[in-house]
Design a protein around this nucleic acid. Structure first.
Lengths: 338, 338
DNA sequence: TTGAAAGCGGTACCAG
DNA sequence: CTGGTACCGCTTTCAA
C-alpha cells in the first residue's frame, strides 16, 4: 500500500499538501499565516511539514513575492577596522530580523562600480546598507530609480536615511581634551580629502579640530596639519616630518587610531617621550588602542551597525518614511598617551 | 508613434524580446550562450539589452536553473581575528568568480545550529564554505544528504575538501625557535579543547609544541601548560598564574596572537622584561603583532580563503571530485619578543 | 536557428 | 474556510 513518490531532493509544497490531504494553497496559508485555516487542517499540515522536513524554497517564494529576504551590505570592510566592528552589529541585528545578509566588499573603484551596478538591485536584495562608501549624485539617483531602500553609515547623504556619529564634535572633543591638558600647539594628521574612494570623516574631524582651536584662540598653524593616505605608515612619515620641522607641536590629534599609531611610531623614532614630549589622541577606539594605552574618541561601532539594520528593516516592513538621521554619541577615553 | 509599455520596474526578458523583435527564448539563448543564434539577431538582442539596461532576475533564473549563484560562508568572524583576513581572500576570490557571497556569523551554539539548519540548504546557496566551525558527524551527514558541496577551512574533516595549514608543524616551528634561543622551560597557553564550539587548532599547535620539546629532550612539565577560554583576558590570567608558580618558564608559546598579547599583559604586570625575562611567541601574525613586535608564526590567511573559494567553485563548475586537501605554508616571523 | 509552451516552487486571487 | 489556477521571470525541451 506504500506509495512513495521517490523523487530525490527536498520536499516541495505539493508533497506536504498531498501528505496532509489538503491543497497547496492551504499549506501556503499555514506557512504564511496569511489567512485563517481550521485548527484540524493546520495541525495536519504542520505535522506533514515536520515529517517531511519541509522548508519552502526561498527562491520560489522570493520570485512569487517579489522580494528576496536579503539585505545587502556594501562596505570596505578590510581597510577600515571599524567596518568590521559595525559588521558585527549588523549581523547580530540582521539575524534577529529574519533577513539574510549578502556582503559586498568594496576596496577599489571598480569593485565599487560593480557593487552598485549588479548588487544594488531589487531582484537581488530588498534593502541596502552602505558603509563608508561615498555616493555620487548619480548613484543616489540610480538607487532612487531602482526603488531600493537604503540606509547609509559614515556617508554624508542627507537625502538618505543614515546612522552616523558627529565627527565634527568628535574632533572637537579630542582637541579640547588636549587644550585642557595645556597644549597650544596641536597638530593634526589625517587623510587627504581626495584619496581614491574619498572618505570624508577625516575632513569632518579636522573641522572639529579647527573649531576647537579657534574657540580657544589657539594658533591654527598650517604647518601643523598634515594629510596623506590612510594608514599607519603614511601617518608615520607625515608625523616624522612635522616633528622635525621648526616649532613642532606638543600634541597631535590623528584622524584615526591607526594613524595615531603611526604618530606614536614617529615619536618613538624621534626619541620623544609620550606623553611627556608629545601627547597623542586617536579616534575610533580600536582594540589595539587599549593595548597601547592610546587616548582616543570612542564611537559605538557595533551599535551604529545594529541601528542601521533596524532602520532599514523598519522601512522595509512599515513602508517608506522620511529620511531618518540617527546620531550616536561619542566618548573620550583618556589613556596613557595624554 | 511612441508606444511605451509604461510598466514601472526593471525590464524583463519579454521586454527585451519585444524590443528586439524576437522571442524570449532567443533572448535567453543570447544570455546564456547555450545555443547558436544568428549574428544579426544576436546583435539586435544585445542592443535591446543595453538600451533597456536589462539584467536577468537572479531569482527567476535561479528558480529555473535550480541554482542560486550564491556561495554561503559560515564563520565566527569576530571572535577569531584571522577569519576576517580570510574573508578578504574569500570576497576577492568570489568576486572574480561570478558568485555572490552570503555570510553567516556564528558565535554561539544557537547561531551555529541556525546556520546549519536554515542556511546550509541547496535552495539558498550552491556551495558552502565553513571556517573554524567544528562539524559533528551529524552535520556532515546532513550536508551530504543535502547534496551541498562544502569546503572547510580550519576544520578537521578528512571526508570534506579543505584548505588548511599544518598547525602541528606551526607549533613545532614556534617551539623550536624558542629552543634555538636556548630556552628549556617553555610554557604553552591555549584554548580548552572543549570550549563550547570546540575549536581544535589550539590542540594541534600544542601537539607541535609537545613534539618539539620531546625531540629536544626538554622537560614537558604539565604545570607549564595552561588552557582556558579563547581571548586576551583569559590568556592573561592563565599566564599570570603560570608566572607566579614555582619554576616559572623562561618562554611561552601562545596558541594565537591575541593570547600572546594576554601573556605580554601578564608579563608586564609581573614586572618581567620581554624578551629578557620572558620570551613570547604567538601564532597567526595579526596586524597588531607587527605593532607590538611580537614574534609569531605567520599563516597566509587571505590566501587560504581565496584557495577555498577556488576549490569550491571548481567543484561547482566541474562536478564533484574527491575530497581535496590543500596545505598552505607557514613562516616564522622573528620580532622583538624573542 | 527559432518560437511556443511547459516547468521551477511558491503565493494570492477568485469562486464556491 | 478551501481548492483551483494564474502568475513571478527565466530556461529549456519539443517541433517546425
Amino acid at each position: 500500500m506504500e506509495r512513495v513518490t521517490d523523487r530525490t531532493g527536498p520536499a516541495r509544497i505539493g508533497d506536504v499538501a498531498r501528505r496532509a490531504g489538503v491543497s497547496p494553497a492551504t499549506v501556503s496559508r499555514v506557512l504564511t499565516g496569511s489567512a485563517r485555516v481550521t485548527d484540524a487542517r493546520r495541525e495536519r499540515v504542520e505535522h506533514a511539514i515536520a515529517e517531511l522536513g519541509f522548508r519552502p524554497s526561498s527562491l520560489a517564494r522570493g520570485l512569487s513575492l517579489g522580494r528576496t529576504g536579503t539585505l545587502g551590505v556594501i562596505a570596505p570592510f578590510f581597510t577600515h577596522w571599524g567596518t568590521m566592528t559595525r559588521l558585527r552589529g549588523i549581523t547580530d541585528s540582521a539575524a534577529a530580523s529574519d533577513y539574510d545578509l549578502m556582503i559586498f566588499n568594496v576596496e577599489t573603484p571598480k569593485q565599487r562600480a560593480d557593487a552598485l551596478l549588479k548588487f544594488a538591485r531589487r531582484d537581488r536584495v530588498d534593502g541596502l546598507l552602505v558603509l563608508s562608501v561615498p555616493l555620487a549624485d548619480d548613484d543616489v539617483e540610480q538607487l532612487r530609480q531602482e526603488g531600493l531602500p537604503v540606509v547609509v553609515v559614515d556617508v554624508d547623504r542627507p537625502e538618505l536615511s543614515r546612522v552616523t556619529i558627529d565627527d565634527v564634535a568628535g574632533g572637537r572633543m579630542a582637541t579640547e581634551h588636549l587644550l585642557e591638558r595645556g597644549h597650544r600647539r596641536i597638530g593634526f594628521v589625517g587623510d587627504l580629502p581626495d584619496s581614491g574612494l574619498g572618505f570624508t570623516v577625516s575632513e569632518l574631524r579636522q573641522r572639529g579640530y579647527r573649531d576647537a582651536l579657534a574657540a580657544a584662540n589657539a594658533p591654527g598653524d598650517p604647518a601643523l596639519v598634515a594629510l596623506g593616505a590612510y594608514g599607519r605608515a603614511a601617518a608615520r612619515s607625515l608625523a616624522t616630518e612635522m616633528l622635525a620641522g621648526p616649532g613642532r607641536p606638543t600634541a597631535i590629534f590623528a584622524a584615526s587610531d591607526m594613524q595615531a599609531i603611526g604618530v606614536l611610531d614617529a615619536a618613538s623614532e624621534a626619541g620623544l617621550r609620550v606623553p611627556g614630549d608629545l601627547a597623542v589622541v586617536g579616534f575610533d577606539d580600536i582594540e589595539i588602542a587599549d593595548v597601547l594605552g592610546l587616548t582616543t574618541v570612542r564611537q559605538p561601532l557595533a551599535d551604529v551597525g545594529a541601528e542601521a539594520v533596524r532602520l532599514l528593516v523598519a522601512e522595509l516592513d512599515d513602508g517608506p518614511r522620511y529620511p531618518l538621521h540617527i546620531v550616536k554619541p561619542l566618548t573620550l577615553i583618556p589613556r596613557r598617551t595624554t
